[in-house]
Design a protein around this nucleic acid. Sequence first.
DNA 1: TAATAATGCATAGATAATCGAGGCATCGAA
DNA 2: TTCGATGCCTCGATTATCTATGCATTATTA
Lengths: 110, 110
Amino acid sequence: MKISKELLKGTTGLVVLSVISEGDMYGYQITQTVKARSDSALVLNEGTLYPILHSFEKNGYLTSYKDGAEGGRERKYYKITAAGKLFLQTHLEEWSYFTSVVNKVLAGEN
Amino acid sequence: MKISKELLKGTTGLVVLSVISEGDMYGYQITQTVKARSDSALVLNEGTLYPILHSFEKNGYLTSYKDGAEGGRERKYYKITAAGKLFLQTHLEEWSYFTSVVNKVLAGEN
DNA sequence: TAATAATGCATAGATAATCGAGGCATCGAA
DNA sequence: TTCGATGCCTCGATTATCTATGCATTATTA
């Protein structure tokens, strides 16, 4: 199923931080991981992903280091920080609450 | 709980059309209904709501009519059309699919 | 071996949803 | 009579994302 662009807004940072929290990852790897896990429903544009990574690093949620996988080409890995984990935790709860509230409104409940 | 602005993006039109689908409503009533149902977590700014109503009417998802409730002041009521119901149905499914996919990625499942 | 696709990082301008602030009017209550 | 709630609307600013582009390396394949 194709998901409209508007719906994607706001969750990108959450998704990015979440997959990095499971293990250090580099940009391209993040796009592939998200795509695979979502059956290609979620596609991270590079023009969206890289600015997010840079801003997260600037804000102290991520750190980065270069590494060339066994003589392979060099990649830029991102690692989540303690502040990043806290940020992630908070926003996971927010996402959960948000969806429950929207579903409540959509269901017509009071 | 306070919900960040980014998370709100994209669901506003869905929420608006959904509450109108339950019965004709006017703008101010929509904001109050959504606020009440969400325990004040979702607040529709007027600067967001009215342009959405106008664009939905322009696109044929809504029609409007003026009515003054028993001698009271005049209000502008919106009514969902057949096209609007179809649009709503499609986007409800999209919302459901979107949340399930995001949750799948956040859960680290493959 | 030459072309092409995939990998990999990055930026810049355009698009569009939402926000914040304001304008204006009516109505009921203090 | 003043003030808060109701009621509709618009405009400029903000910002997340997109599209397009640039550039380099590696693997495939024709």
